[in-house]
Design a protein around this nucleic acid. Sequence first.
DNA 1: ATAAAACCTAAAGCCGCTATAGCTTCAAGA
DNA 2: TCTTGAAGCTATAGCGGCTTTAGGTTTTAT
Lengths: 145, 145
Amino acid sequence: MGIGTLASRAGCQVQTVRYYEQIGLLPPAMRNAGNQRRYDNATLRRLTFIRHARDFGFSVEAVRELLGMADHPDMPCDHADAIAKRHLEEVEARIERLSALRDELKRMVAQCAGGRVDECRIVEVLSDHQQCLHAADHGGQQTIR
Amino acid sequence: MGIGTLASRAGCQVQTVRYYEQIGLLPPAMRNAGNQRRYDNATLRRLTFIRHARDFGFSVEAVRELLGMADHPDMPCDHADAIAKRHLEEVEARIERLSALRDELKRMVAQCAGGRVDECRIVEVLSDHQQCLHAADHGGQQTIR
DNA sequence: ATAAAACCTAAAGCCGCTATAGCTTCAAGA
DNA sequence: TCTTGAAGCTATAGCGGCTTTAGGTTTTAT
């Protein structure tokens, strides 16, 4: 099949397929006489795996490792387990930080009386030197799509 | 004060201050005889405002608008309120998506028996053609720091 | 006087794609 | 067979919000 068919079957864009080839998640594709990429079902399965893993929020580097493991079915799966657990922890940490943020925002919005800017609780909170959040989300691969 | 003092008082990096000047969040700084930036307390307050707003997860564009409003204390604060409310909604949506993701990950991890890769539930779920998440997080300014 | 620390500019890198520009090849209909 | 439009190709730039690097200048402390 061509790259368009592959992409639509895997649920991603054509450029994304080329990008994955470029960064080595997919092997260099076979080409037809006119230099266009041709794919088999094995590549479709690989791409589907990649997309699922990305949908789960795994980073490209994690996907690379998971792919490496999927390629060796006879090996123990401890490492896959560890990667998934670590990712779960990161997601949970992110949820916690965002929840704290949500609470602060809620309080802020609730206290805005809707008058002039100089009476506005929103602007006030942001101006306040004392206020500190430290809700640091040093987000890694947070674009979960 | 110099840029280092300013940055440390506002709790950010020196380069970030220069970056904010470059994108127009901070006005072009005064310079001393040796071309080094000098700041007053008004700029420190402005930078602190910016950092707080960023800590709250507001995008730079939103911060730009909020700053514009903070500069006009006599205007009505409807728009500040609207920006904050919209941001709150986005944060809540993000939490929901991440929570769904967390549940999926938990299930996945719980089902891994710790054997070989070809029996591993983690690899299996990712390989499965049927599985779909659609937990799309088309994250805007999600790096909350 | 000297050395270390802080400062300067300009440009590239990060992540994971997405979009653009300017071409070539393919497939279907007349 | 010819034509047209869709799909494909490569290379490069752009997104957000900084961070890092390179290579230089100025300030500050001893």
